[in-house]
Structures are given as C-alpha cells and as structure tokens.
C-alpha cells in the first residue's frame, strides 16, 4: 500500500476516535512524538519522587508519613506504567532512562524547585498534582491506546494525591500562626511554577498543533492553564490564603479569571538546567541507577543459572 494511503487510513482512524495500537501502522513522527511525550511524562513521575521523597523521613506524624510514602510510591508505579507504554513504541526502558541521565530527555521543570518546609508537601499535592491531573484527565482520551490506558489507571490512583495535599494545607491554615505563615509561604513559592507546568503559550509551542491533529493532546496549553487558574482561585478562598498575583481577578465577560504574566525567563532558565535543584535531581537519579547496576546484574545472572524454571503453581494455573 502506498504511504499516502496508509497515512489517510491512519488519520481517518484518529478522526473517528479509534485508538491506535502498537501493531498498527503509524507515521514515524507520530511514533516519535509519542515516545518523546510518554517518556518525558515517565521521567517526570520518577524525578518527581525526589522533592517529596525527601520529606518522608521528616513527616510530622505517623499518619502523614504513611500517606506520603504511599503517594511517592504511587509515582514510581506511574512512572513504571508509562515506561511500559513507551516500550510498546520501540524503546527499551534502559534506553529511555539513559536519555534522561544524559540530559537528552526532559522532565517537568517543576521538580527542580526545592521543598523547604512541610507545607511544600501540601502545596505540591494541591497545586502541582492539581495541574498534572488536568493534563492527565485529558490524556485519558489520547489517541495512542497504551498511553491512554496507562493514563486511566494513573488518574484513578492520582485522585487521592491532590486531596491529601489540600488537606495538609487545610490543617495548617487552621493551625498556629507559624503554620499559617508556612502555608502561605509555600503557596507563594509554588503558584507560579505550577502555572509554568502547562508549558509555553500556544502561540509559542512548537509541538502543539500536530499533536492536536493527531489527538495526542486534546486541549491547548493555555486552555488547560486557564482551567487550572479558575479552579485554584476558588479553592484558595477555602484555605483563607492568597495567590501571589495582584492581577488575579474574576472577569464577568469571559467568565474566567484574568491573571498576570508568567516570568518566562525563569521558565526557560529552569528548562535549560539553571533551576535551584536541576543538578541534584539528575545526580540522585543517576546515582540510584548506577548503584543499582550490580543488583540488576546479579538478579539476571541468577535467573540465567536457574533456567529453565517453572514457577510454583504455573501448571495448574488455568
């Protein structure tokens, strides 16, 4: 079949909301875009474990400790689902991880900001996960089947993440003077970076248009960002806290909140690696991977020695 026919069949499927599956023909650029986006997403989950992870040992109560541990563990699971989805497109996990470590692959810049106080764990859950969820809900309908299925599972599990974050801040907002200050300070520091999570303005986003056509993305960066602002501007009132933006104001005409301009210099600087924690984050991941090498090798060597091996119960499995 000539290439243009294949391309037509492919686009027709997309237009008819039929999911693309691994074995189906797909344009090379579609494959590459998906690999890039899914692995970026996977890396974000994994690197995202670090800023929160460093509060696991300092969580202020046993209940919070268990919740945070379970939450960060969920992120590991989500990274795993996504790496698996990327693998259906022809990239091995090792290769994908190598791209992260070499700096070739990106992850969400938000995780290059430090978690300074306990309130940051609340702010991350509420704002960062809140922003991520908007993106992820959209991605449940993305056109590539394995990605969409991973996202459905992730969204189901994520639903407690944002709630636990808000609850942390809610408790702080009713607490001592110090706790209230801690709460407001965390919101001040995480608000703008979480707006940046949606990426550059639509007018400047190079990958967006084709991704929309292929239904990899289904809403634009600015659309999602506006949804987020509308949502958070209301929720912050419940906390009795303020978002650090003088320009934030309800607009009767648009039925949306207006808000101030993002500091794009900061955004691009962090993307380029100049964020407060870029170096630490990547170093931590590399260290874990390198120090784990002998473990992975030992397990593989042992498995090789014991082959062929039928797991107990395999025979009566059916």
């Amino acid at each position: 079949m000539p290439l243009q026919d294949l391309e037509k069949i492919f686009q027709d499927k997309i237009d008819a909301e039929i999911k693309i599956e691994p074995k189906d023909w797909m344009p090379e650029a579609y494959r590459k875009t998906n690999i890039r986006q899914i692995s970026q997403h996977a890396h974000s989950e994994i690197v995202g474990m670090l800023p929160e992870g460093n509060w696991i040992t300092r969580a202020p109560s046993l209940k919070r400790k268990a919740i945070l541990l379970a939450k960060v563990q969920d992120e590991a699971g989500h990274g795993l689902y996504l790496y698996s989805a990327a693998e259906t497109l022809g990239t091995s996990r090792e290769q994908t991880i190598n791209d992260l470590h070499s700096g070739k692959a990106k992850y969400s810049s938000i995780f290059n900001y430090p978690t300074l106080t306990w309130a940051d764990i609340g702010a991350i859950g509420w704002l960062v996960d809140g922003a991520a969820i908007l993106n992820q809900v959209m991605l449940c309908r993305t056109s590539y089947g394995p990605y969409a299925r991973a996202m459905v599972r992730i969204c189901k599990e994520e639903s407690f993440h944002q709630r636990q974050g808000f609850e942390i801040l809610w408790v702080l907002s009713k607490g001592t003077r110090e706790q209230k200050a801690m709460c407001q300070d965390a919101i001040n520091r995480w608000w703008w970076p979480s707006l940046m999570m949606f990426g550059p303005h639509d007018s400047e986003s190079t990958n967006s248009e084709q991704s929309m056509l292929w239904k990899i993305k289904r809403k634009s960066n600015d659309e999602l960002r506006q949804n987020f602002v509308d949502m958070i501007a209301e929720q912050v009132k419940v906390l009795g806290m303020k978002l650090p933006d003088d320009k934030l104001k309800w607009n009767e005409q648009t039925r949306h909140y207006d808000f101030g301009e993002i500091n794009w210099d900061e955004f691009w600087n962090v993307v380029k690696g100049n964020g407060p924690c870029n170096k630490e984050r990547l170093e931590a991941r590399k260290k874990a991977w390198e120090e784990g090498k002998w473990v992975r090798e030992a397990a593989a060597a042992y498995a090789e020695k014991r082959k062929p091996q039928t797991p107990k119960g395999a025979l009566e499995a059916a």
Binding site: I46, M49, L50, G53, Q73, A76
Partner: peptide, 12 residues
C-alpha cells in the same frame, strides 16, 4: 523508607 525514590530498579 529512606530507599523510596532511590531503589536499584523501579519495581524493587
């Protein structure tokens, strides 16, 4: 819990 985020492979 100190291992969380630093394990030798994601599954572990």
């Amino acid at each position: 819990s100190e291992w969380c985020g630093h394990g030798p492979v994601l599954e572990q």
